[in-house]
């Protein structure tokens, strides 16, 4: 335990420990949901701050990471939050490693994801990056499995169009 943690309450110390693990574990999910690293860090910070507000109750819960994942998805797809945040943050240019050409496919995919409405983007990321079943995605988004299926289908249709990928036919 660091000297800083020694001065924290037990609850705060447990929160710090969770944050240090959760940050690395969920920042990439946040990037896919939010569209770029800046927004991802903001989304993850906001979600973790909300967890702090409820920490005393939450810290007795079984799966904090599942809770955080739901919070990331809900905060990103939150209608109200999105209207504020996406209006304000400039798009951070895609970074290329020095001495290497930009990965055009990655740039195209990143832009295509951002062109999806947040709920469709969440469905694609949860199904294909987190590999969650439709039932779990539906639970996280607070909708029916049927809605997840239709959002998924529309999202793949749009990605196919944006990426000129004839094979995204949404048959999953």
């Amino acid at each position: 335990m660091t000297d800083q943690n020694k001065r924290l309450s037990t609850a705060d110390a447990s929160y710090v420990a969770f944050v240090e693990e959760a940050w690395q574990r969920h920042i990439r999910l946040a990037m896919l949901l939010a569209g770029d690293r800046w927004r991802a860090e903001e989304l993850l910070q906001d979600s973790l701050v909300r967890m702090y507000e409820r920490w005393r109750r939450l810290s007795r819960s079984d799966d904090l990471h599942a809770y955080l994942r739901r919070a990331l998805v809900n905060n990103q797809t939150s209608f109200w939050r999105r209207r504020r945040r996406e209006n304000l943050v400039a798009e951070v240019p895609d970074r290329a490693a020095p001495d290497t050409a930009p990965d055009h496919d990655a740039v195209a995919l990143r832009r295509a994801l951002r062109a999806l409405p947040p709920k469709q983007r969440a469905v694609v990321v949860l199904r294909h990056y987190e590999d969650l079943p439709e039932r779990e995605v539906a639970r996280m988004l607070g909708c029916s499995v049927g809605t997840v299926k239709s959002q998924h289908s529309r999202a793949l249709e749009k990605l196919r169009h944006l990426l000129h990928e004839p094979s995204y036919t949404g048959s999953r």
Binding site: I27, L32, L109, R110, H128, Y129, L156, Y168, S171, R172
Partner: peptide, 21 residues
Amino acid sequence: IDERLASQLHALVDGEPDSAA
């Protein structure tokens, strides 16, 4: 299809450097 999209999504972000919380 799923494997390709999954692999592309992972390729998009898995190489991102870690950052301090």
